[in-house]
């Protein structure tokens, strides 16, 4: 087994495009779930808004990619309002039901034959984001050091992506350290207490849902532009729950939590996959147990095992505060 390769692949994956996409999705979810206590189970829908807005604007409307980015932000805001306005006055569970359903509706519409001429149906929209790569200031070639060597286009995506992660984290940091952040944390702890102190709980929940949704939409844009491809099935419920995993892994209600969580999650996925692939190729795994084609599925089982270890040994997450989780809420 080539352990050097396994380690370097893991390190690459930890800063790779998936880590960026899920870090952005998780930063948004952390604002919803970690700070405001909103159960948004449809973050994938917000990613889809970002991704499809860029794709549809370029391919179907023949607009520029940058108009698509603007439309993506507006679309995420509109989705947050559609989901939030009717449900945020109700108990927390209703938002969960509505968001999980809405995200699936968006995915199924996107991949339907009926709207295929707009969304590309099940084959999606491909090769549309050249405008992004034309802006690449890096000349042709390979850059980086150690395990982190990338070609110019890949590095350009990673630079912009991590820039967005940094910017989003900064915005969340400023927000949660402000009196605004104090109000949303109070809503998480007890809505009625916040109301009794004169806070308009509903307005704050809507604002939180919008901001977290827009950050999620940026994740979708990175996903789509980085792959030069929008695929409906990338925005299923698994995406939401992997992002939620990243939040919990890193530690809820911690600004670096979702970023660290996403990096560790994708490092872990790459690590298990590479081990299994190599072991399988070298005949170390009897085919009666795992064949080469099953590796992709089995790696998630192993990741699942690792994630089960987390709440047992470190329930507060990597960056979490142990004392904080000892208090019962409600």
């Amino acid at each position: 087994m080539d352990w050097g390769l396994i380690v370097s692949e893991t390190l690459r994956a930890a800063v790779g495009q998936e880590a960026i996409v899920f870090a952005l999705a998780a930063i948004g979810l952390n604002l919803h779930f970690g700070y405001t206590g909103l159960l948004n189970f449809g973050q994938a829908g917000f990613l889809a808004m970002g991704a499809y807005s860029t794709g549809i604007c370029v391919e179907y409307l023949q607009w520029s990619l940058w108009a698509g980015v603007g439309v993506g932000i507006v679309a995420a805001i509109v989705l947050a309002l559609i989901l939030g306005l009717p449900t945020l006055r109700l108990r927390a569970d209703y938002l969960a039901i509505v968001t999980i359903a809405a995200a699936e509706i968006i995915r199924l519409i996107a991949r339907s034959v009926t709207f295929g001429h707009i969304t590309g149906g099940s084959s999606g929209i491909n090769g549309y984001a050249d405008a992004f790569y034309e802006l690449n200031p890096l000349g042709d070639g390979t850059y980086g050091f150690g395990p982190w060597r990338f070609d110019d286009n890949r590095l350009w995506v990673l630079m912009v992506g991590w820039g967005l992660v940094g910017l989003s984290s900064l915005v969340v940091l400023l927000l949660v350290r402000s009196p605004w952040g104090r109000v949303i944390k109070a809503i998480r702890e007890d809505e009625d207490a916040a109301r009794s102190l004169g806070k308009n709980v509903y307005a704050y929940k809507v604002q939180s849902l919008v901001v977290g949704g827009v950050i999620g939409a940026f994740g979708g844009m990175v996903f789509a532009i980085g792959n030069q491809s929008v695929q409906a099935d990338n925005y299923g419920t698994a995406t939401t729950f992997l992002a939620l995993t990243a939040v919990i892994l890193g530690g809820t209600a911690r600004v670096p939590g979702p970023v660290g969580g996403a990096m560790i999650l994708w490092g872990l996925i790459s690590f298990t996959e590479n081990i299994l692939r190599q072991a399988s190729a070298e005949g170390l795994l009897p085919t009666a147990i795992i064949s080469g084609t099953q590796v992709g599925i089995v790696r998630f089982m192993l990741v699942g095992l690792a994630l089960m270890a987390l709440p047992i040994f470190r329930p507060q997450g990597i960056f979490g505060n142990r004392r904080e989780i000892t208090f019962e809420t409600r």
Binding site: S178, P179, W180, V183, K185, A193, V211, F327
Partner: peptide, 26 residues
């Protein structure tokens, strides 16, 4: 508010806080 400090609990009670507006909070 269990997972907030006593001081943060108190500050929450203050009315008309400028920093409670989303844009000014930034």
């Amino acid at each position: 508010l269990a997972r907030m400090s006593v001081m943060d609990n108190m500050k929450l009670g203050a009315p008309d806080q400028r920093g409670e507006n989303f844009f000014r909070a930034l």
